[in-house]
């Protein structure tokens, strides 16, 4: 069975380590904040200028001056700090954020990522995604493995305009967890009940399947 959105978020959260500063993109990455293991300290960075993002506010706590990068009202945790966009991206570009999680349309086995533009369709812009993929060393891309019509999104070469070149090393899809090494996807884990054959069939870029590919554990 393909992973649900919650399971994807849960698997992302398994990558968190105590004391990590983490930037979570909009959508599934943001959900991962709900699965931070008990007793572990993780500080969320929001690129509009907040380190230590908390949960959504109660009706009484809503403050128009306190939002996240998705323009949603949020709160701050104890020990939070506030800063300008230049400072925020200095943190990101300077490699100070321990883990970045973001979505994508396509990833290829050269580590390229396309996530911000579909030519001919609505152009919204890259926001902070290009800075995040260029600045971080530890990035997890979360995405669906294939389109609804069964076309692979894990390619030998991205077809859409790139967000970043050669910067992705780990991809989590609804079917599999894969690393990218030396121009190949390496299958590390599979979603519970999903066969290696199905993953092979839906991965169009070069894929290495180790002898033992464990199922994800939740």
């Amino acid at each position: 069975m393909a992973l649900t959105r919650e399971q994807l978020a849960q698997r992302v959260a398994q990558e968190f380590q105590d004391g990590f500063y983490v930037n979570l993109g909009i959508g599934i990455p943001t959900l991962a904040a709900n699965f931070i293991p008990q007793g572990m300290q993780v500080m969320l960075q929001s690129e509009n200028g907040l380190l230590g993002m908390g949960q959504f506010p109660t009706e009484e706590e809503v403050d128009a001056d306190l939002i996240n990068a998705g323009k949603q009202t949020v709160t701050m945790v104890k020990g939070a700090s506030l800063f300008s966009s230049a400072e925020s991206f200095a943190m990101i570009r300077g490699g100070h954020v321990d883990l970045t999680v973001l979505g994508a349309f396509e990833v290829d086995c050269q580590g390229n990522i396309a996530s911000y533009m579909i030519p001919g369709k609505l152009i919204k812009g890259m926001g902070g995604a290009m800075d995040l993929v260029a600045g971080a060393d530890n990035i997890i891309v979360t995405m669906t493995h294939a389109s609804k019509t069964g076309e692979s999104k894990l390619l030998s070469e991205c077809t859409l305009p790139l967000t970043g070149k050669g910067c992705i090393k780990r991809v989590l899809t609804d079917l599999a967890l894969m690393d990218i090494e030396d121009g190949k996807f390496i299958l590390r884990e599979r979603a519970p009940g999903v066969s290696v054959e199905e993953i092979k069939r839906l991965t169009s870029g070069a894929l290495v399947v180790p002898e033992h590919v464990p199922e994800m554990i939740f």
Partner: peptide, 27 residues
């Protein structure tokens, strides 16, 4: 890109005409 835009403004105000960044390379 958002970080590049912030830095373009920062540089403009700080008398730095241009800067190198990895953001956007190959895109």
């Amino acid at each position: 890109p958002q970080g590049t835009l912030a830095e373009k403004m920062r540089a403009g105000g700080a008398g730095i005409p241009a800067f190198y960044t990895a953001t956007g390379y190959g895109t």
